[in-house]
């Protein structure tokens, strides 16, 4: 595997008053890998991710994303990453094409690039019929796939996915993961949080966060053998059993 480091954190911490949401996170993510960022509800996954994408200032610790510092170079970070939030966040009152054009434009793609790439995107998603329909009228699974396609539309170095498959049916989830594989294959590093342990199996490496700290970080295969578990589900239960936080 290509070992070029694209995310490197050192004791990255976020405090809200006395509450330590993310405690001294130290890890590395390599180029082109699918990195699963697991944890129970309230473990601090979203907080950690928000620091990495530059919309939340860390309390202390360091992190470099695509070589840029999370304190000083957030604008450069933003140019080099894609992000898909938990909440569906494309414009529902714009059409599929208009959303693609908007985000393409924001990331500085030329009109020509937007034109050709959006056609490619729509064909790939099989949305020719829906291209001029409002996003609000699409079923959730389609919205999520569209959201992901737009997050990687500007060919970012890293794409951050925050529980991208929540509430989506198994078939669509499978298709979604095919898209993730394809992106990784094209050299985009994928940083993904999820609740689904079967999805964790698809990752190259996973970290498991419990109560704000990273409890384990390895490939699914190693984690299973270390913990004498048959599946990631078991691994997760063993590690997260001691969790005090959560809903």
């Amino acid at each position: 595997m290509n070992k070029e480091i694209v995310i490197k954190t050192n004791k990255l911490t976020k405090k809200f008053g006395n509450f330590i949401a993310a405690n001294e996170l130290t890890f590395e993510v390599y180029k082109g890998e699918i990195f699963g960022f697991l944890g129970a509800n309230g473990a601090g996954k979203t907080t950690a991710m928000k620091m990495l994408i530059g919309i939340s200032k860390p309390s202390f610790g360091d992190a470099k994303i695509a070589g840029f510092d999370v304190y000083k170079q957030t604008e450069q970070i933003k140019r080099n990453i894609g992000y898909m939030s938990q909440k569906f966040s494309l414009y529902e009152d714009l059409t599929v094409k208009e959303n693609v054009r908007l985000f393409g434009g924001i990331y500085g793609l030329s009109d020509k690039e937007i034109e050709s790439k959006s056609e490619e995107l729509i064909n790939k998603l099989g949305m020719q019929q829906e291209a001029d329909k409002l996003v609000a009228s699409l079923p959730l699974g389609w919205k999520q796939k569209l959201s992901f396609s737009i997050a990687i539309f500007h060919s970012p170095k890293i794409v951050f996915l925050d529980e991208p498959t929540g509430g989506v049916d198994p078939v669509t989830r499978r298709q979604f993961w095919d898209m993730i594989y394809e992106a990784a294959h094209n050299g985009i590093t994928v940083f993904v949080t999820t609740h689904y342990m079967d999805e964790a199996e698809y990752c190259d490496r996973v970290s498991i966060m419990v109560d704000g700290v990273i409890k384990a970080l390895d490939s699914p295969k190693n984690l299973k053998s270390e913990n004498n578990a048959k599946s990631m589900d078991e691994v997760f239960l063993i590690l997260a059993r001691g969790a005090k936080r959560g809903e």
Binding site: I53, G54, I55, Y83, S85, S89, L90, F103, I106, Y107
Partner: peptide, 8 residues
């Protein structure tokens, strides 16, 4: 949030 993570 989607706009905030973009280089706008």
């Amino acid at each position: 949030e989607q706009l905030n993570v973009s280089p706008i």
